[in-house]
């Protein structure tokens, strides 16, 4: 006769198998595209045009695809730097503006506060493609067309409604007493914001940063319209140029290599910020 203890142990064992099995299966579906792309980028030139299965290189690992990618435009390194400048610039500007705006909306009382806030949020409903032409004209008038800084400003503008909303919520979640205690302790204005409040709204800042980075990094249309000279292209524009290839033939290897290159910074940014993104720093502040 099996004891209840054994029955329980066996039940727990099968439960664990089912739990992890489902988890691994789900993870596979999410990871497979990355894996396929990554492996395919190491196929040789001759193998490139072959059917995609099996996805891994069968005739030895080669970096032909990366060489081909680097042959386009001003070299992949130059375009990666362009993309990084625009994306990181967007992150910094977005965070600075949205932290200040979020703090203002959360803590100060001023006339038409809620109307203004709703107006800012309402701009989320405007498809940005529809304002691309006016934006282009404005940038041209400012002498900022075909400049990475101009593109950065556009991205910041597009990113702000969501970010301000996010930061206002983050500041709303910080108890007023903490701020008051800091004021009694003698922290004022910027010092108060940087030394006391910033660490408390870090989850919000991380979220805003991740979104700003990913959106700026992956954005295509505005970059295509606003950047006219080859050496200013960001990676998404370069990738389209790569895909269009020569005489209609698509160099799939270079495309896979480009995808691999583009994924790396996104992963890096996410891993860097995810501990703030996940962590509830507020625990223990009050009560």
């Amino acid at each position: 006769m099996t004891s209840r203890r054994e029955i329980r142990a066996r039940k727990a064992f099968w439960n664990r198998i089912a739990y992890h099995g489902v988890g691994i299966g789900t993870a596979f579906f999410f990871l497979a595209p990355f894996l396929v792309g990554f492996l395919a980028s190491f196929r040789s030139n001759s193998e490139n045009g072959q059917p995609p299965l099996p996805p891994w290189p069968t005739a030895g690992i080669s970096i032909d695809a990366y060489r081909a990618l680097d042959g386009f435009g001003s070299g992949v390194w130059q375009h990666t730097v362009n993309s990084l400048i625009v994306s990181l610039g967007t992150v910094v500007l977005t965070v600075v503006v949205s932290v200040l705006a979020g703090y203002g909306f959360s803590r100060y009382r001023f006339p038409l506060k809620n109307v203004l806030f709703v107006l800012i949020i309402a701009t989320l409903m405007i498809p940005f493609q529809s304002i691309l032409t006016p934006l282009f004209i404005i940038l041209a008038k400012l002498g900022l067309n075909n400049s990475l800084f101009g593109l950065m400003l556009i991205y910041v503008t597009l990113q702000l409604p969501f970010s301000v909303f996010m930061m206002r919520n983050a500041f709303d979640a910080v108890p007023k007493e903490i701020e008051e205690a800091a004021r009694i302790d003698g922290a004022r204005d910027l010092k108060l914001l940087v030394r006391v409040l910033m660490p408390l709204v870090m989850p919000g800042v991380a979220t805003v940063s991740i979104f700003a980075f990913l959106n700026a990094w992956n954005e295509f249309l505005a970059a295509l319209v606003l950047l006219s000279s080859n050496e200013n292209y960001t990676l998404p524009v370069l990738m389209t140029a790569v895909r269009a290839g020569r005489l209609g033939a698509i160099n799939w290897g270079a495309v896979q290599a480009g995808v691999t290159v583009m994924v790396v910074p996104c992963l890096f940014v996410f891993l860097l910020l995810q501990r703030y993104y996940m962590r509830g720093l507020m625990a223990g502040a009050v009560k």
Partner: peptide, 8 residues
């Protein structure tokens, strides 16, 4: 303060 208001 009632809620302690420590810096977490």
């Amino acid at each position: 303060f009632q809620s302690y208001a420590l810096y977490p």
